[in-house]
Structures are given as C-alpha cells and as structure tokens.
C-alpha cells in the first residue's frame, strides 16, 4: 500500500499491576490508507479499544505504550508531548466513543461544545465558528438545526446525541476518525442510520476510519478491510469480503459461524467453546489454542506470526501448511 495515512508498527501496550504486567496490546501492526475504513473486530478485552486509545495518545495511566511506533503521514506521533499531541487530537485524528449519552458534557450547550472545539483548531472568529457549527449539525442530519444548536445534550435522543458526537469529531476536518463502538449503545434501527451517516461523511470528506466494534455485521457493511483481534494480537487481517468468505484463522471461522443469517438454518449456528483468556493468563504458543478446533502440537508452544499473501494474512500455523501445500502443487 502506497503511503499509508496511519501506520502502527509493533505496538505494545502494558498495564503494570500489583500482580505483574498485563499486556493489553501485544505486537500489533496495522495501517490505514487515506479514506479507507478499517474495521477492528474482537471480543471485549481483545485490545481493540486500547489500540484506538494508543493512537490518539489517551491511554489512561498507569497503562502505557511500552514498545512500537505510531506514524501519521510518516511522522511519529507516539512520542509527542501532551501539548504537541493535543494539536493532533481533534485536528488530524478525531474520535467517537461508545456511549453518546455520556460523551457530551451535560452542563454545556451543544453550540458551546462545538464552537469550543472549532476555535481550538481553526483560526475562526466566534461568529464564523458558530456558522460552521450550524453547518456541521445540518450535515450530520439534525432536523431544525438552528433551533437545536443551543440546546443542551439532555434535550437530544441517543441517536441524535451520537450525531452531535460525530459532528464534534468532524469539527476540524480530521483525516482519520477512531470510532470506538459507535453504535453499540444505540437501538438497532438507529445503528444503521449512524453507520450510513458515518460512511457518507467519510466518503465526502475523504476521512479514513478505524471502526472498532464487536459487531461483524457492522464491519461487513462498512469496512474496506478488517483486522480480527484476539487476546491483544491480530489473528487475521485482510479485505473484508475475503475475510468473511474465506476466513483463514479458526477464530475468524468461529466468529463467522456464530452469526445468524436471515434465511439460513439456525440449527447450523456454531459457537466457539470457552472464552477469551484473561490478560493475566494468556496461554503459551498461540493464545487461541485451548479453544481451537484445529489445534495441533506446535500451537501449544510456538506463537505464530502473521503469515499470508500481501493483503490477506492470519497468524495461524495452518497458514504455513497451506503455504507449503501451495508450493508443492
């Protein structure tokens, strides 16, 4: 991929605790091209939100980036000071959080929060900023925006609040948006609207998105590529259709098998036995091996790296076998 917008190299996020160091994100590399939507999917605790937090430099202490590099346009941003990073947050990289009900400050008008963000990053007068705030609200599809502009967050419904949050994230035309479970807290009917909105806005503004979610359906609808995370590592990454139709990692296969499809026979739903290991007790070798239906002895001891062709790869020893078979044919 030529000139990725964002590149994460060998990122490792650690949490020192009394019982020892927890590794929330373990040696993750990924990249996002300008205007691309990268889905990051995984169970709770797989490290997907933590990866997002690391990119915008907001990991809560005592957590820290222990190793690796994060590059925006080829420039390292993981070692910037708080103030330097502050100029990137909101301006270059926007963020949308899970719960729109708690993302907005209840004591400030929507207009105040928008204008404050706009004037922080752009050289505009109060009046110009207000005009821009109004445009943004219209753009995210808030009806009667003139009137709603000066309302307080509690006067909006959940879906409308998430639209406001999106408007806030778009204030300074960032080139990348980290959307951390943007639809999880919303009604299913609203989810589709928000996803459609996100997609449209990013197409229009050429904004790339890192879409963090545990909802494979949302990924399938929205993302260009998808990274499947498991226990702090990337299990599989590739173009979204490839990954869905030809999953290479047994974990991804399991995830796909567990999604009910309308019209499909529901007795064919499979499930992955057991649950993801706690970060305190990640097994040796491949972290997935205790739950893997295709486990063999090598998985117990040696941890697989991402293997595959240029765009679609998985960290599984089966890949090695397939590659070997491919050679012999």
């Amino acid at each position: 991929m030529a000139n990725p917008l964002l590149e994460v190299r060998n990122l490792r996020v650690e949490f020192p605790t009394r019982k020892g160091t927890l590794v929330a994100v373990d040696d993750i590399s990924l990249s996002i091209a300008p205007g691309e939507v990268l889905g990051v999917v995984g169970e709770s605790g797989a490290g997907k939100s933590m990866t997002g937090a690391a990119i915008i430099g907001l990991i809560e202490p005592p957590g820290r980036v222990a190793d690796g590099e994060i590059l925006l346009d080829g420039r390292r941003i993981d070692n910037l000071s708080y103030d330097e990073m502050r100029k990137i947050r909101g301006k270059e990289i926007g963020a949308i959080f899970q719960d729109p009900l708690t993302s907005l400050n209840p004591l400030y008008r929507v207009s105040e929060q928008l204008i404050e963000t706009i004037t922080t990053h752009m050289d505009l007068t109060e009046k110009q900023a207000r005009a821009r705030a109004l445009d943004l609200l219209k753009e995210v599809g808030i009806p009667a925006a003139e009137e709603r502009l000066d309302h307080y967050p509690h006067q909006f419904s959940g879906g409308m609040r998430q639209r406001v949050v999106i408007a806030l994230a778009l204030c300074a035309e960032p080139r990348l948006i980290i959307a951390d479970e943007p639809t999880t807290a919303l009604d299913v009917s609203i989810q589709a609207q928000i996803i459609t909105l996100l997609k449209r806005l990013c197409r229009e503004h050429q904004t790339a998105i890192m879409l963090v979610t545990h909802d494979m359906g949302v990924i399938a609808e929205t993302a260009d590529r998808v990274a499947v995370m498991y226990a702090g590592r990337i299990a599989e990454v590739g173009p979204v259709q490839d990954v869905i139709k030809r999953a290479r990692h047994p974990y991804t296969e399991g995830l796909m098998g567990a999604i009910p499809t309308i019209g499909g026979r529901d007795d064919l739903l499979t499930q992955i036995d057991g649950s993801m290991p706690r970060l305190t007790a990640i097994p040796n070798g491949c972290a997935f091996h205790p739950r893997c239906p295709k486990v063999h002895f090598k998985c117990h001891t040696v941890r697989p790296d991402l293997i595959g062709d240029g765009s679609h790869s998985a960290s599984c020893w089966l890949m090695e076998k397939q590659a070997a078979q491919g050679d012999s044919q």
């Binding site: 915008i56 907001l58 990137i88 909101g90 959080f97 993302s103 963000t117 922080t120 994230a169 300074a172």
Partner: peptide, 8 residues
C-alpha cells in the same frame, strides 16, 4: 475523555 480527544 471525549473533551481530551477533541484536542481541548
């Protein structure tokens, strides 16, 4: 957190 993420 969101206020920080907005770069305030």
């Amino acid at each position: 957190k969101f206020a920080r993420a907005r770069g305030l």
